[in-house]
Amino acid sequence: MLEVSGLTVDYLTANGPVRSCNGVDLTVHEREIVGIAGESGSGKSTLITALTRLQRPPAVTTAGSILYHSPGHEPVELTTMTDGELRRLRWNEIAIVMQSAMDCMNPVMRLGDQFADTLRAHRPGIRRQAVKERTAELLQLVGVPADRARSYPHQLSGGMRQRSLIALALACDPRVVVMDEPTTAVDVVMQRQILTQLLSLQDRLGFAVVFVTHDLSLLVQLADRIAIMYAGRIVEEAVSDQIYRNPFHPYTRGLRDAFPSLHAPMGELSGISGNPPDLRNPPSGCPFHPRCPQRLEQCDSVLPELLPIDGRRVACHLHTTPQEEISR
């Protein structure tokens, strides 16, 4: 449904561009939950904003394409769309849920009015009564009492705000919902509630989800497929279960082991040593090589390509170099 290829995003700064997304390829299929995991600075949020063409200066898309397929239509290219075309596409086809609901909502507007605004903008000619009914329906969908439509955002609890934001995203029956750390600002119990609700909604309404978070253990539970990002690139992409049970890339393994388990027997965990890369001055070769416990000779000079292996994609010399060459 969404086909991203070679997407490159630069932040223009006075000291030259900083590449925070580097040749990213990613596909999202219908009714699929794709997770994107990475740390801060890995480019995951940049990818999301570029994907939805919401990035603000100084971020600019310098290369790549984003194709959106819809049944019965020619695929459309998002990167060269005009603002007007984009506006039509957003909400109706692609909706976005951000990390902080407070930043996305108008603080001086009642919740119901914000829904009405969105509905009217994307469904011209919609009747007043229909707007009201739709708002109530949407709020109930996410478990917010319908009479909350009369509240201002600050009168709602954090969890309710975040759920309302999801309801707002679903207002125009989008086919893809892009979520950028939608549960980071809420507590674990609320997080669980939002996620189970999301799953049941997705089940019922059949939209696809792109879910971005730093919390890999959460993603393993939620997503069908996971892409791991590091320093602006996807380093591994596989089915969730494979990412968790048998990660190929040393960074994926480190990230998985960075979360202590709740029930499994536990010894000393080691995590990932070293510091996240400085994007202004990225390491040569594989960007992970300074922190990698399984570094090979060529890692500091040759950038590994993201290649398909065993039904997944991985960018690591350990797996793309023939065995005899490693032993040599």
Binding site: L12, T13, A14, P57, P58, V60
Partner: peptide, 18 residues
């Protein structure tokens, strides 16, 4: 203002290329 200027320049170049 500096970064904004850079972006404007970039946008112009891209539009021309397009």
């Amino acid at each position: 203002g500096k970064e904004r200027k850079l972006v404007r320049k970039f946008d112009k170049a891209r539009r021309r290329a397009h």
